[in-house]
C-alpha cells in the first residue's frame, strides 16, 4: 500500500500508455519504445549524479560552502554557481537534488537559482553539441543572452516575487535534515 501511494503518478502514466496502446497500437508502441530508450540513457547518468552528491554532502563542510557561495559571496558566488551548473551533465531535473544539498550547505538562494539556470542552459558539453548542429553564431548568441538573463531573473525572483519568509521556508526543509 505504501509503495502504491508513493508510485501513484507512475501508475497513472502506465495506465495512460496502456490505454494509448489499445486504441492506437502504433503510437502506443512508439511511446513505449521512446520511454524505454530514455530510461536506458538516464539509468546510466542518474546514479552518477547521486553518488557524487552523497560524497559532496559528507565531505564538504557547510562553512566552506557558505564562504564561497553564501550571503556576501558576491560575484565569486555567482561565478561559482555558473561553473557548477555548466560543468555538469544530465537533464534539468537532475539539478533539483543537487540544489537541495547546496541549500543544506548554506548557499545563498539567488545563487541556487543561478545554478539551476546554468544547469538548464549553459552546460558546456551541450553548447559544443549545439554549435556543431546549429552553428557558432546561434550558440554564442544564445549564450550571450542567457547568461545575463539568468542572473537578472534570479535576482528579480529573490527580490520582488518571494518574501524573505518564503525563501526561508523552502531552505528550512533542507537545513533541518541531518
Amino acid at each position: 500500500m505504501k509503495v502504491l501511494k508513493k508510485y501513484y503518478l507512475f501508475l497513472i502514466s502506465i495506465i495512460l500508455i496502456s490505454i494509448l496502446f489499445t486504441f492506437n497500437t502504433n503510437i502506443g508502441l512508439k511511446a513505449i519504445m521512446i520511454s524505454g530508450n530514455t530510461l536506458g540513457q538516464l539509468i546510466l547518468i542518474l546514479p552518477a549524479i547521486f553518488l557524487v552528491l552523497g560524497l559532496l554532502d559528507v565531505w564538504v563542510p557547510r562553512e566552506t560552502m557558505i564562504k564561497f557561495m553564501g550571503e556576501g559571496s558576491g560575484i565569486k558566488g555567482i561565478a561559482l554557481a555558473f561553473l557548477l551548473g555548466s560543468a555538469t551533465a544530465g537533464p534539468l531535473y537532475g539539478a533539483f537534488p543537487v540544489a537541495a544539498v547546496l541549500m543544506k550547505k548554506g548557499v545563498k538562494f539567488s545563487n541556487i537559482l543561478i545554478f539551476i539556470g546554468a544547469w538548464s542552459t549553459t552546460k558546456i558539453p551541450m553548447i559544443l553539441f549545439e554549435i556543431e548542429s546549429l552553428g557558432l553564431k546561434f550558440g554564442i548568441t544564445r549564450l550571450l543572452i542567457d547568461i545575463p538573463g539568468i542572473i537578472i531573473m534570479s535576482f528579480l525572483i529573490c527580490k520582488y516575487f518571494l518574501s524573505k519568509n518564503e525563501i526561508l521556508l523552502i531552505e528550512q526543509k533542507y537545513k533541518n535534515e541531518s
Binding site: K6, Y7, Y8, L9, F10, I12, S13, I14, L16, I17, L20, I27, G28, K30, A31, I32, M33, I34, S35, G36, T38, L39, L42, L46, Y93
Partner: peptide, 16 residues
C-alpha cells in the same frame, strides 16, 4: 517515483 512518471509522459508526448 516522479522521475519514472516524467519519463513515460515524455515518451507519450514525443510519440505524438
Amino acid at each position: 517515483p516522479e522521475f519514472l512518471f516524467v519519463v513515460v509522459i515524455v515518451g507519450i508526448a514525443i510519440a505524438f
